[in-house]
Amino acid sequence: MAVVNEGALKKMLKQYKYRDLTAREITNVISQYKDLKPVMDAYTFNDGSSRDLMSLTGTLPVSYRGNVYNIPVCLWLLDMYPYNPPICFVKPTSAMMIKTGKHIDANGKIYLPYLHEWKHTHQSQSDLYGLIQVMIVVFSEEPPVYSRPTTQPPYQTFQA
């Protein structure tokens, strides 16, 4: 796997307001979670506008009923990160279906109290590492995706 160093990340993050802080946090996270990679790509907002943003894309290791699964996720960092929370999605493969529920909508968007209460101050520093740990715990109780049964057609979601 290619190693991304902090210097290269800073170049990719040149339009980010807190570039150094963001690059350092990404470097720390991908050193711990080796199946996440920083990817620069176009993100389309609800109003149809689009910006090139950094995401952490890959899988998170989640234990569920005695097995470890690699849950595919994509965590988008806005250009005001870490003062705005990431926008997070599960990214099911064609062999998976989303399990909508309290924390996941039909588009795979992730909703967590940690994201809703995101705050980056001297007293309280929400960060990617904390967010990922929360995701792993929540997903180990309620996986956001399931393997599609082989007899079902694709592109269905399972209602909780």
Partner: peptide
Amino acid sequence: LNGGAVPSAPPTYT
């Protein structure tokens, strides 16, 4: 070879 872990998910329980 550079792709990281293969995505996987628990089986569906009915």
